[in-house]
Design a protein around this nucleic acid. Structure first.
Lengths: 206, 206
DNA sequence: TCAGGACGTGAGCTTTTGCTCAGAATAATG
DNA sequence: CATTATTCTGAGCAAAAGCTCACGTCCTGA
């Protein structure tokens, strides 16, 4: 048993439906509590309380607090999986639509609970396994976008790798910021301009 | 004495040089420790240990842990102050240089300790005073850039407010990301492309 | 029906951490 | 040198939080 198993693997494998439900209740409650209080102040007792169960039950399914956040993170990454990026429109003249769909993807991916996402990304305990997993996911996405850009006839940039990195980064970060801060800004306008900026850049207008 | 004073004001005003030095040592050590362990795990005992002093000394100059981070934040905000943005080159054909200087500004502002900055911004305890100060600082910068863009002859965008928000956000976030993640990416290339993307957007190429 | 396994409970143990305080060490003052 | 003020020390207190464990309840299968 590796140290990683000891630290993140579930303590008991649910065998009855009841147990499976309990596990889900823990995760749902944890998502709520982490989103509301942050990771440090989102105590396990508070999670158990919010899930209307005893703290003991919680520790039957998760060996420690980190493992709960880890599971939430893994699920989030798995869920989105950025499936859309592979199916980008590659016909000439469609670049704007392609970029639009990338942005939409990002927004959708953040929509469920931006606050929780912020906490997962920024306050997550430093577990090398998780960091690695997230990083792999990130670079995979960049490569995916890179390949799509490479195939698109309208794209003209000096360096595809750098462009992909920049585009993915800019989209993700702006989306992230848009969702996290409850500002009274015209969200749609900003989205339009973001698309315009990236499209212009990729098209090679200079 | 307001509650804010009770919570953030120093406990003892240094009167000898030795004391002033001790105060500085605390802040330096705190910057190190927060940057390395994060706010929650950056314990006061660890800070004192890193500063080679007793925990008691630390609490002679700061009433609590939050006050230490607050002081670091205030100093950071005061230092940079984004003085450069006001002096942007407004002659025709200089747009690229102007954007370049904006990016340089952002990089300089983050250079001292990007990891610490991340923690200060994202893990800072929720003190309404501080949040407000940072927010004021942020919107002030956006307005500053907006005004500069408004005066520049080469800028053609549909909405100056939205554009300023987008530009400042994109620059800050990308810089932030660039400094935070120790990736083997060609930093200079990315910087060049970032400048190109924003310049193209502001110029109105579509 | 009933034995044994799965599941749930919560008081409280253990560790961590922010912080105090009584007094020692050092510096200014006369 | 004596006195007073300032600074420094670190063992340890109190609160908080992660987590355990002995026991009770529920479910399944024969």
């Amino acid at each position: 048993m590796t140290s990683s198993d000891r630290r993140l693997a579930p303590r008991r494998k649910p065998q009855q439906v009841r147990a499976e439900l309990t596990r889900e209740r823990i995760l749902t409650a944890a998502a709520h509590v982490f989103a509301e209080h942050g990771y440090a102040a989102g105590t396990t007792n508070r999670i158990a309380q919010h899930a209307h169960m005893s703290i003991g039950s919680l520790y039957q399914y998760f060996p420690n607090k980190d493992a709960i956040l880890a599971e939430l993170l893994v699920r989030h990454v798995d869920r989105g999986a950025w499936a859309g990026a592979a199916a980008l429109d590659l016909t000439p003249g469609s670049l704007r639509k392609a970029v639009e769909s990338l942005v939409r993807d990002a927004i959708d991916h953040h929509r469920d609970d931006p606050q929780l996402l912020r906490i997962m990304i920024e306050e997550a305990p430093v577990s090398s396994d998780l960091i690695e997993a997230i990083d792999r996911h990130g670079t995979a996405r960049v490569r995916q976008v890179r390949d799509a850009l490479a195939r698109h006839p309208d794209v003209h940039v000096p360096d595809l790798d750098v462009a992909a990195e920049l585009v993915v980064g800019t989209i993700e970060l702006n989306t992230h910021k848009l969702m996290a801060t409850p500002r009274p800004v015209q969200v749609e306008k900003l989205e339009t301009e973001l698309v315009a900026m990236i499209t212009g850049y990729l098209r090679g207008d200079r």
